[in-house]
Design a protein around this nucleic acid. Sequence first.
RNA 1: ACUGCGGGCUACUCCAUCGCCUUGUCCGCCACUGGCGGACGGGGAGGAACGUCCGGACAACGUAGGGCACCGCACCACCUAACGGGUGGGGCACGAGCAAUCGUGAACAGAAAGUGUCACAGAAAAUUACCGCCCCGAGCAAUCGGGGUAAGGGUGAAAACGUGCGGUAAGAGCGCACGGCGUUCCGCAGCAAUGCGGGGGGCGGAUAAACCUUGUGGGUUGAAAUGCCAUGUACACCGGCGAUGGCACUGGGGGAUUUCGGAUUUCGGAUAUUCGAUUUCGGACGUAUGUUCUCCGAAAUCCCAAAUCCCAAAUCCGAAAUCCUCCAGUGCCGGAGGGCGGCCCGCCCGAGCCGGGGGGUAGGCAGAUAGAGGCCGGUCGUGAGGUCGGUUCGAGAUAAAUGAUGGAGCCCGUCUUGCGUCGGGUUACAGAAUCCGGCUUAUUGGUCCGCAGUGCUU
RNA 2: GGCUCCGUAGUACAAUGGAUAGUAUGUAGGUUUCCGGAACCUAAGAUACAGGUUCGAUCCCUGUCGGGGCUA
Length: 171
Amino acid sequence: MNLAVGIWLLAFLLPLRSAKISPTSPPMADFTFKKAERLKSLKVIGGLFKGGQSFGVYPLRLFWSEHPPEAEPGGAPVQFTVSVAKKNFKSAVARNRIKRKVREAWRLNKHRLYRKLEGTERQFAFLVLFVAKEDLPMAQIEKAMQTMVHLFFKKNISPAANPPGDGQPLS
RNA sequence: ACUGCGGGCUACUCCAUCGCCUUGUCCGCCACUGGCGGACGGGGAGGAACGUCCGGACAACGUAGGGCACCGCACCACCUAACGGGUGGGGCACGAGCAAUCGUGAACAGAAAGUGUCACAGAAAAUUACCGCCCCGAGCAAUCGGGGUAAGGGUGAAAACGUGCGGUAAGAGCGCACGGCGUUCCGCAGCAAUGCGGGGGGCGGAUAAACCUUGUGGGUUGAAAUGCCAUGUACACCGGCGAUGGCACUGGGGGAUUUCGGAUUUCGGAUAUUCGAUUUCGGACGUAUGUUCUCCGAAAUCCCAAAUCCCAAAUCCGAAAUCCUCCAGUGCCGGAGGGCGGCCCGCCCGAGCCGGGGGGUAGGCAGAUAGAGGCCGGUCGUGAGGUCGGUUCGAGAUAAAUGAUGGAGCCCGUCUUGCGUCGGGUUACAGAAUCCGGCUUAUUGGUCCGCAGUGCUU
RNA sequence: GGCUCCGUAGUACAAUGGAUAGUAUGUAGGUUUCCGGAACCUAAGAUACAGGUUCGAUCCCUGUCGGGGCUA
């Protein structure tokens, strides 16, 4: 019953890709967002802005880096956090609203990347910056998130693309 | 009826799904009473949670004393835990009205305690006299000199109570009548502010959101307060200031020498390292296929975000005598520095204090969510509010939880007689961080009340 | 979370409650030069916002808005 609803929801949200995804989708797509999946370390976030790699999919921009392999065995594959500039949105309420939307978009689409990372022990830190100057509807944010996840996989994870030897731990 | 202004109340509802924070019960795993995961339940932002402008609760520290500073408040009474808040009353200003009265507004003690300031203009900005008016003297006269005066002119934001009469050389509250202002005394009303009436004495410009005076209140710092637990480490080092001084008494320790006794081990002796960490290179030992581990040397790099946090203690057989030395306690003198919230006097504590540099840790629990609480009813009060009874409880995070999607109700608009169709909206201001009482500011839609204006009806 | 200070031309700063808010630099125009620079002349340009006290406010008071600093 849960599965049926989950697939129905996916089919509604992603009419273009649903046919591609549903056959390979695991029986229990994990839509949770636990504490272990949140990026909290000030050091890592500072390092991301300083030395992390990044690319943009309007209205989002992803800063990412890979954790050293022995950092935290058994931890979450990706630690994720959102940032919205105070410069663009003066009101704290507007910033919180956007952060919640982006977090929601990640929650509903992270399973695509998790499935690709299965079997490997690699761990990443993600920071998504909201770069638009105004609030956008949920559908647009979600579509950008899907494109972003796909691009990240294509550039860095898939065997075709040689991952840059930048696995250095950030200091 | 509409519009505008001001104020009060309210802050969309239901269902389904996926998530987040917190909590109860049960189960499983790891571990050893905690963590993770799962199942089923409970709860999950505001009227302003904003601002941080006041007042409290609570907590730590302080609580010999005196003086001087500093900050707030200011008609009266009451409410309250308290307030700079609120309620009621008084006077004042403005508006409406013939008036009675009504509405609105405000930081409404003192300018007759003292000091300062009042640009420009004006004679003068607070014991002032330019023109003028009058008197006296000089002079033929124009005019000049001395004196009186403040009615008239002019300047200015503001000019020395107003009008009339008397009075005078000319004038002037100099006197009188009426009026105004503020002060004081008496009577009446009122708890009081104050009002009304009468009497005395008076006419002294503004500014206290200038200094100030009077009255009154304020201990300081704030949950990053504070208490407990856990983790971890290195009094390596440098600079500055100051004690370890003297006397007396008591107690204890150490060393040397001599003597005596006991136990254990034993062939005898020697050497190395120094703030730490990481990386690279070379070497040594053991082991080894290799990895890994230990030690040594060299080179390079790093070495705090920060504090009033921590970096500590003990240890080498016994007893007696003599000598030396050290430590602790008590009393007196000396003493860097510290405390009494900013300063001074005065009082108290006192052996370490200050700066630089380095290392470690920064996790958890309590504080912390049942309270001056909400709702309903009775009762007292004009009211703010008090009191009694019943009932009810409902966020507690810590890089920080409320979001997303769909449907229905609801609202607006188009078409339509209507049913209905289609499109749009479902919001504004805004997000708890110890809690509470106020104030200020922001604000969509609905609704109610007051005031003003316009139109229509009677 | 708490405390505290500030807001003046585009920029950096002045101005005791008193006339038309000043200085430097920048901007614009002109003179000079073959052209540019430098120099000289001229002009425009501001008291964060709202209200109050006062005859009069950049200054004093209150409230909003914005910015900075301190505090583990």
